[in-house]
Design a protein around this nucleic acid. Structure first.
Lengths: 106, 106
DNA sequence: CTCCTATTTGCAATATTGGCCAAATAGGCA
DNA sequence: TGCCTATTTGGCCAATATTGCAAATAGGAG
């Protein structure tokens, strides 16, 4: 396969991989409501704060979120709200799967 | 965090995770052009055929593709073309990142 | 400066993924 | 039946990802 295509696909995969994790999806959903600090997100996710911090730094490294320090807190903001559109597609896949299972049974 | 929300997020993550891999992205792009058999996809991806077969079975298990055996070949079809829309969003994230880097330098 | 709070980083343990090879399976054809 | 081709499955290993704890860092307040 073409090396350029490979590079392009890997760059895309890195971003999509960042979205393919339940904790990070939750973080993105929370950020969809507006900026949040790490402590707030930690509360929502339920993991150790250090774990959440690492998820955030991953999301930041691929460009999905931005961070801003104010006082001794760090606020994270969703940079690419378009990822929220993924959910509709994903839901349709889940729907279709349920439908398929019903057909198998019936 | 709510257990139902957790379940829902994990179901979504499973699908998105399936898309977050360069080889599987390539497979999805190939399938966007129409159904292909495993050998064709193997040629395009460049991995061992057993590896490609596993990628396909993963994509199938999350409901993104469908398989159909005809003769001694198995043809795979894209079930959720909406995943192709992810690419626009992902490209915009990559673009924004480049832009950000330029600002850092400049 | 010292203490307190918020966050990040380093480290180690564990889990998951991606890959290949070899073996198994399945269909078609002689 | 036996052979050939196409695909899947099982086993295994290396690389990567996820997590928590403890230590480090950074900013604000006294």
């Amino acid at each position: 396969m073409d090396a350029n295509r490979q590079k392009r696909l890997e760059a895309r995969a890195r971003i999509l991989k960042a979205v393919g994790n339940a904790s990070r999806l939750l973080i993105l959903e929370e950020l969809a409501q507006g900026e949040k600090c790490v402590a707030d997100l930690t509360q929502a996710v339920g993991n150790d704060i250090s774990t959440v911090s690492k998820h955030l730094s991953l999301l930041k490294s691929v460009g999905l979120v931005r961070d801003e320090k104010r006082g001794n807190q760090v606020f994270y903001t969703l940079l690419a709200p378009c990822v929220l559109n993924f959910f509709d597609c994903v839901e349709s896949v889940l729907e279709a799967r349920v439908q398929h299972q019903i057909e198998m049974i019936g």
